[in-house]
Simulated assay, not measured.
Amino acid sequence: MEATDIPRSGDDPGAGTPGGQRDQALQAGEPGGDGTPGGPSLTAALEAILMVVDEPVAEVTLAQVLERPTAEVAAALRALSGEYTASGRGFDLREVAGGWRFYTRAECAALVERFVRDGQQARLTQAALETLAVVAYRQPVSRARVAAVRGVSSDGVMRTLVARGLVEEAGTDPESQAVLYRTTSYFLERLGLRSLDELPALAPFLPDDVEILEEQK
């Protein structure tokens, strides 16, 4: 490398380019950038907040905290997400369960799990998975209804799902007064879904006589 290629102390490579000037403005919070004069840029503020959250944060909430237009915040979040993907970062910024949060990129998930859990993974039992599936597709649903679908009592399993934050109470049935249950935003987060509308359709997996079986119950 020639001496002329080595940046001098205090110099910013690319500062003479339009992109470099914009990056400097973003970092310094100068007028013309994302930030306000003397303060952090919008992107820096978003990164700082999202770095410490333990659940997805809605765009409107971030806009209120930062006192910026929601549309501007939404655009900045999507730009950051695209930037992280394009640069191949080990983390990802995703919109999940009505909000935004940092996640480990899929390619690095196995390494992180090995580090955090030392190879030990806490998994839901088959009974818990069945019960969770019934709640997800039939919600709001009572424990009696879940038991009717599974053919076995699900009281203990339901308590486990509630304790893990995957299921929560959703009022009572107006006729039977039975407690109803539904999935939580944490459930959406764990499955990487924005809403229940993104659940896969069940029709392709159901038997042809499902309607007759349903009427017989």
Rank of each mutant, 00 (worst) to 15 (best):
V52T: 02
F102D: 03
L93A: 05
G35L: 01
E83M: 13
S87H: 04
E168M: 13
G151L: 14
E2M: 04
G151C: 07
L213E: 03
L202R: 06
P13H: 15
R150C: 14
G151H: 14
A163Y: 10
D173N: 14
T70K: 05
P174L: 01
T125L: 11
G151I: 04
T43S: 08
E198C: 10
V53A: 12
V179F: 11
Q139V: 02
G33N: 07
E95K: 04
G35E: 03
V73K: 05
A28F: 00
G192T: 13
R101F: 15
R190D: 01
A170Y: 09
A25H: 14
V162P: 07
D23G: 12
L46A: 00
P31D: 15
L188A: 11
S41A: 14
V116T: 06
G32H: 10
P7R: 08
G35R: 01
S185A: 15
L206W: 14
R159H: 12
E95V: 00
A170I: 13
A201K: 08
S81A: 13
P207I: 01
V149P: 05
A71S: 13
R123I: 08
R182S: 09
V141A: 12
A45S: 13
G99Y: 08
S185M: 13
I212G: 04
D197T: 02
Q121L: 15
R68F: 08
V149K: 06
E55S: 14
E107Y: 02
P40F: 04
G156E: 02
P200V: 01
D12F: 08
P18T: 10
M51Q: 04
Q121V: 14
E214V: 11
G35T: 00
G10W: 04
V60G: 02
